[in-house]
Design a binder for these strands. Structure first.
Lengths: 321, 321
DNA sequence: GCTATATATGCTCTTTGTGAGTATATATAG
DNA sequence: CTATATATACTCACAAAGAGCATATATAGC
């Protein structure tokens, strides 16, 4: 091992304030208590598009209070959502914790957000909304995304004016000039649009706003975080399989990846990659489509796929303009 | 845009329980309040090794209560740490939020952990500990890591017994058999050792424990999370530069990357990559080492490195091997 | 039968990135 | 003059990725 300094086993003498912190106690005079809420971003795929399960006309996520019996936050969230909605949750991860300052009473509100995958065709009573209804520019598969991106570029250029550094940021996050489009930067893109005053949540507004549904509180930002995370996650974990039926065709798998990435991929290369990594194993069954040759059904092969790299499957679309 | 179903603008009729949740109110009879604490994992590099700033003989992180005046959690944490320790914080990110169930009184304890980078040679009064004192197996630069990893492999093999799937997990996360070592999996490795009962925090124990300092509560797990995150982060953001002095030699930069990754790198290739991406610009000054030719001092070039944010530009790190 | 459609498979190419090696100036201390 | 470390310039092999071409095969509808 590399030797490291300060290994005497005793910490230095500390100023009072810090020694106090060591006890991890809130100020005894005024213990700061928070209402704490768990927020669930539930994702599933239908119609070749990623959807979220929403409340209040697409403006809110399901959420519930943290209760005392919860052993861990994640377990608590899972149990709670499964009991309330009857849904089985697949891949689950914590997204972000944020606080609302106000709340007239003497305490804050802390919200802990989670993202969870839900298998296709699950039964539930929540309203599904396409994620791309909130971020139309993120779906580069749509023909309309070309002109939309052009319009965004124009407004960003106007916002950046002569500020070269600011324009650099716009160009790299939105894949302008000769930069490439990076699908994992959806959070950065949303934040940039927020800064530029092009979304209704901005504290100031700048010219006509962009299309796209808005949400309560910071929820649209949470959704952008979720989109970034899921796009990153499916690259190097087998999480996609929690969105698909137990058995699926290779085209379904590819389309699920395309739905999440918001881009089309090269079919032959995709299959080559998937199969040479032994991510899936074929079943005896076939899927009969309305037209064309029946497709072999596959299933996820978890034993050989502790870590997988579906990354190579991110193909650029024919250059848009 | 892809058309998406359920766009009627009205959510379905909801069961009572869920409509209730929509209001985001905790059970009126028993509002669940939490003590909320901010935990800071402060990282800096000294002696070519990543260190954390600790309290209580290396067993605890600085932490403090969330107070009412904080506008955002991140801002609150920054202000609080900077006021208490006098340190300037560089790259900061939220790590994870976790809860302790007990606390005799009627409420839980919620801890929100952050990681922040601190520039080399900063003045402070906290005790520094090498991160690799907590996870000796994570520093593959150390000669001792070879035998240690061998010993770990043996004990994991014993734990896995004939459970092939379990051994698969061990092999891929620890780079055994013919799998490569992936430095970003440090959290997964810690969790696996925890499961196998090889660390003192495990709820059960299995044969002699591994070397490595322990910490209070879940803090060692938080530290493993921090290590994973920082290794992932420096790959595609210029965050490393917040750990180095304003001016540095290319060797210093390489050694900082090596320290975080826990691996050695090929000097010529490293320089080739750094320079062709224009991440740094040379200054007029030189560093005079005790021996050898003076090294040119460089500085971070933020204008071209927003571009580094991800135009496919990555800081070189050893690939998995 | 034929056609349209979509699955399934095999095979080239080129380009890029990367890991690794060799060689050789150059500047300083002792 | 030597040891040391910076700095720079190459080459080479190899794998992976992006892209294209070709061709079976199986179904439905006409």
């Amino acid at each position: 091992m590399q030797p490291s300094p300060h290994m005497t086993g005793h910490s230095y003498a500390l100023p009072d304030m810090i020694s106090h912190l060591e006890t991890s106690l809130p100020n005894a005079a005024q213990p700061v208590l928070c209402e704490t809420e768990l927020v669930a971003v539930l994702v599933s795929i239908s119609n070749n598009t990623p959807h979220i399960l929403t409340l209040d006309h697409g403006r809110s996520f399901p959420s519930g209070p943290l209760t005392v019996e919860h052993r861990s936050l994640q377990k608590g969230m899972r149990n709670w959502v499964e009991r309330q909605t009857g849904l089985k949750l697949g891949h689950t991860e914590q997204l972000y914790t944020f606080a609302d300052p106000l709340h007239g009473r003497g305490h804050q509100m802390v919200r802990i957000s989670y993202m969870a995958f839900i298998r296709q065709n699950s039964e539930h009573t929540l309203a599904e909304r396409s994620i791309y209804d909130y971020f139309p520019w993120e779906d580069r598969r749509a023909p309309a995304s070309g002109p939309l991106l052009q319009a965004i570029a124009d407004r960003l250029r106007h916002w950046a004016q002569d500020n070269a550094h600011r324009w650099q940021r716009c160009a790299t996050t939105f894949g302008l000039d000769d930069h490439g489009w990076n699908d994992e930067l959806s959070l950065a893109r949303y934040e940039l649009l927020w800064e530029a005053g092009l979304v209704p949540e901005s504290t100031w507004q700048n010219a006509p706003l962009l299309p796209g549904l808005s949400m309560h509180r910071d929820y649209r930002r949470v959704l952008a975080t979720a989109l970034s995370r899921m796009r990153a996650k499916i690259r190097y974990t087998p999480a996609v399989f929690d969105l698909l039926p137990q058995q699926f065709t290779l085209l379904q798998l590819q389309q699920a990846m395309e739905a999440l990435a918001g881009r089309f991929m090269h079919k032959q290369n995709f299959r080559r990659l998937v199969q040479q990594q032994k991510l899936v194993s074929r079943t005896a069954e076939y899927d009969t489509p309305p037209q064309g040759r029946p497709a072999q059904l596959y299933q996820f092969a978890p034993q050989t796929a502790e870590h997988c790299y579906l990354a190579g499957a991110k193909l650029p679309l024919p250059a848009i303009s």
